[in-house]
Design a protein around this nucleic acid. Structure first.
Length: 103
DNA sequence: GGGGTGACGCGTC
DNA sequence: CGACGCGCCACCC
């Protein structure tokens, strides 16, 4: 299984209404230093229906600007639709960050 | 096998 | 968490 596959597995497990940081996904995928690779993997995103890439944000909770394939509001819209409130494009991580370690 | 690329993270200012 | 720089590592020519 490639690193990409591992990353996709982790991202696909992020519960609705929660978000995870790239670093967290990288850590759960097996290596905390894969944060950049996570970004690369999500960019490839071969299956958007299985991979909720909009639930992945950076360490501060900011949405990815490059995700805006049709407008960065897209990601914000999808998140708020799941109950995640955003303040000026930033998620309150202390409240919405996925606690993947508790699974 | 070598080089370029990037949806990042962290320290520092 | 405003900006800048460096490190990191898999992926694709």
């Amino acid at each position: 299984m490639s690193v990409f596959e591992k990353i996709y597995e982790v991202v696909s497990q992020i519960p609705k209404g929660k978000v995870a940081t790239y670093g967290q996904v990288a850590l759960l995928a097996g290596n905390p230093r894969w944060s950049r690779v996570v970004g690369y993997a999500l960019h490839a995103n071969p299956d958007p229906e299985r991979i909720p890439c909009h639930r992945v944000v950076d360490r501060f909770g900011s949405v990815s600007k490059a995700f805006a394939f049709g407008g960065e509001n897209r990601q914000i819209y999808l998140l708020e639709r799941e109950g995640v409130k955003l303040n000026n494009g930033v998620v309150d991580l202390s409240r919405y960050q996925w606690d993947g370690f508790q699974i």
